[in-house]
């Protein structure tokens, strides 16, 4: 089982290594979440809020489950 972005707990970081599909990849790339970059979870209150470099993005649960990390 691959780990997903949603499994990060607050304060924890992970490196994004892939997306479940091309569509998710394109959408998230537009928001500044790129493969190979680190993402840090800064909040998890229903949706998850992550910071990657200088962007802060809120993602719904199902979307966050489509982002693989290590």
């Amino acid at each position: 089982m691959k780990r997903t972005l949603y499994e990060l707990s607050v304060g924890e970081s992970g490196q994004m290594i892939g997306f479940a599909d091309k569509n998710t990849e394109h959408t998230l790339r537009n928001f500044g979440l790129f493969i190979g970059r680190n993402a840090t979870c800064i909040a998890k209150i229903g949706p998850i809020v992550v910071r990657s470099d200088l962007v802060v993005i809120a993602l719904g649960k199902t979307l966050a489950l489509r982002v693989y990390i290590k």
Binding site: P47, V49, V56, I57, A58, L59, G60, T62, L63
Partner: peptide, 9 residues
């Protein structure tokens, strides 16, 4: 639809 939103400073 799923939430996906930029959080500005």
């Amino acid at each position: 639809s799923e939430l996906l939103m930029d959080i500005p400073p």
